[in-house]
Design a protein around this nucleic acid. Structure first.
Length: 577
DNA sequence: CCCCTCACG
DNA sequence: ACGTACGTGAGGGGC
């Protein structure tokens, strides 16, 4: 028997799904047919009308289909209604079918249905202060547009569902990506608390230092210019101060002034360290310290990121508005920012759970390299173990430099790095770099075989896949252009590793979320940062949650190497590491 | 709207 | 001879 399946799409007066008001809902369950239900602009009446549809949204037998389901679910949730499984998101379906392309409804309608939908711009006008809101329009004006979206969703589903079956993406779609929608939705709704007062004080502090640095830099340069302009800065350094005769240029012809270039000029002129510090502080202030307090939700005072499930071609998540996956941790000045991410109150703390070396464990498992598997099974520090092998010394005798070189190679391997790249990274000669790489592959011979095998298989099949059969097509793998082909070859090696790690943590998140719900915990999962999960943990639940999270994360998949998760609890995100 | 730079894994 | 490590998001400059 074919399952009942209904597409829906919500129209709202804004894009903030936690607060936007619903204006109407369209439904479609038959090709070229749809219905629009206008919802009154008043919370109480809206709730009572939407309640008529509660049995539909919360049905455990009817499949709810939407394009970007997480958004619509958040809107519906505002009115006290759940959107229960089974669900089908056409945007995610297309992401699995072809992760490298775009997944917007308009693009997909043109490509798969040869149909150009009425654009939102035609309806409400271009962005700007004259742009109308959905709530400024009559139901008659919205109806066709809304119905069209529900109908397109229906028609896209008819195309994508069989493709999901055919491409062996069923398991990935129904048991991983669709359940994950609900997990991410919950994390976004929770949000994380920040110490905005602390950040505002820090901003003043940084502002003063920056003003002083600006004066000093301009005095050293002898002219007034905009330090924030790479173009002007390049001219000052290389034409005016003549700090280098062979200055590198970018592909657009201006002088390159990136961090690595400036580091090499550090001792040529006192202005360079000043610029490096200025750049760092400017970045921290403008990207994190100043914007974060402004992004606090007015009703709960927390920061609510959005996780994008269909952006990263490897299967990773991405985070935006704001991006909470690139909060500083490496520099001392940056650590202050991470410190300002705190628990929701005095009864709670933050708990961070990190996979240790997950990508290297995955490469060990996928390649079946005995030496690397043994290193992990014996619980050795993988970079030291690698150093011992590559430099042929005892594990106890590995020096800091040797370990750090080995670490660079271990990472380079994941990315398909060349001798040139390693040499640049370590500041050694290309010859030395080549020797290290050769020795590496002698010690881990199966890893070399594995990498060559991935490229070969990509050439034959046109795609590579992860442990959960997530695919990435590599159209350039047979390109005649060596540079272009090189990119595809590195992707052939990297995508299964990065993507399998993404598979593992996604499965873990579903397991953790389910177990936490089942045990009715007060603690909440808040953030995911590729190999890390962050929780607001109630003080009574610390031990319970630690055990639960460690178990779920370490047993998310069964590999020939053990997975290891490190967990710490503290008052802020920095100290939880 | 693209480019450069830089924050993270 | 050529380019050269994967995946992201965001801010500012400059056209």
């Amino acid at each position: 028997m074919k399952q009942k399946s209904v597409c829906f799409d919500t129209e709202t007066d804004g894009l903030n799904a936690l607060h936007a008001n619903i204006v109407g809902v369209s439904f479609s369950f038959k090709k070229r047919e749809a219905f629009y239900v206008a919802i009154p602009n008043n919370r109480e009446d809206a709730t009572s009308i939407l309640n008529e549809f509660k049995p539909f949204f919360e049905s455990e037998s009817i499949e709810k289909v939407a394009h970007n389901l997480k958004f619509d679910t958040k809107i519906i949730n505002q009115y006290g209604i759940e959107v229960s499984a089974p669900t089908f998101d056409t945007m995610i379906a297309h992401y699995l079918i072809n992760p490298d392309s775009k997944h917007g409804m308009d693009v997909l309608a043109e490509r798969f249905l040869s149909y150009k939908p009425v654009s939102i711009v035609e309806l409400i006008g271009k962005k700007g202060k004259n742009q109308k809101k959905m709530s400024d329009l009559t139901p008659e004006e919205i109806s066709d547009y809304a119905c069209e979206d529900a109908d397109i969703t229906f028609q896209l589903k008819e195309i994508f569902e069989p493709q999901i079956q055919k491409e062996h993406l069923k398991e990935l779609f129904y048991n991983m990506e669709m359940p994950l929608v609900d997990v991410l939705k919950s994390m976004e709704q929770e949000g994380i608390t920040i110490d905005d007062e602390g950040l505002k004080k820090y901003s003043i502090d940084l502002g003063e230092t920056l003003a002083e640095l600006e004066q000093k830099i301009k005095r050293e340069a002898g002219i007034d210019f905009n330090i924030d302009s790479p173009k002007q800065l390049g001219d000052v350094l290389f034409d005016h101060l003549e700090l280098s005769t062979k200055a590198k240029k970018t592909k657009t012809g201006q002088y390159a002034t990136g961090e690595d270039i400036l580091q090499k000029l550090k001792h040529k002129h006192v202005i360079i360290p000043m610029i490096l510090e200025y750049r760092q502080l400017r970045k921290l202030k403008n990207t994190y310290v100043d914007p974060l307090p402004d992004l606090m939700d007015e009703t709960d005072g927390r920061i609510h990121t959005s996780y994008m499930q269909t952006v990263a071609a490897t299967g990773r998540l991405s985070s935006n508005k704001p991006n909470l996956q690139n909060i500083p941790i490496r520099s001392e000045k940056g650590k202050e920012i991470r410190k300002s991410f705190i628990s929701r109150g005095k009864d709670f703390q933050l708990m961070a759970a990190d996979y240790s070396q997950i990508e290297l464990r995955i490469i060990a498992a996928l390649s079946q390299d005995k030496n690397m598997i043994d290193a992990f099974k014996n619980g050795h520090d993988i970079h030291s173990a690698t150093a011992a092998k590559v430099f042929n010394v005892n594990l106890e005798d590995v020096t800091r430099e040797e370990r750090s070189s080995a670490k660079a190679v271990n990472f380079g391997i994941i990315y398909g790095q060349s001798a040139f790249g390693l040499a640049q990274n370590l500041g050694i000669s290309r010859k030395e770099a080549k020797q290290i790489i050769d020795s590496y592959f002698e010690q881990y011979p199966t890893i070399k075989d594995y990498m060559d095998g991935m490229v070969k298989s990509a050439r034959e099949k046109g795609y590579v896949e992860t442990i959960m059969k997530r695919r990435r097509y590599l159209k350039d793998i047979n390109s005649a252009n060596a540079v272009v082909r090189g990119f595809a070859e590195r992707n052939a090696v990297n995508a299964p590793i990065q993507g399998s790690a993404a598979d593992v943590i996604k499965l873990a998140m579903i397991g953790v979320h389910g177990a936490m719900k089942e045990q009715n915990l007060k603690s909440k999962m808040l953030l995911q940062v590729h190999d890390e999960l962050v929780f607001d943990v109630h003080k009574d639940e610390i031990e319970t949650l630690k055990t639960l999270v460690k178990n779920e994360m370490e047993s998310a998949v069964e590999l020939v190497v053990p997975l290891d998760v490190e967990i710490e609890v503290a008052d802020n995100w920095l100290d939880a590491h």
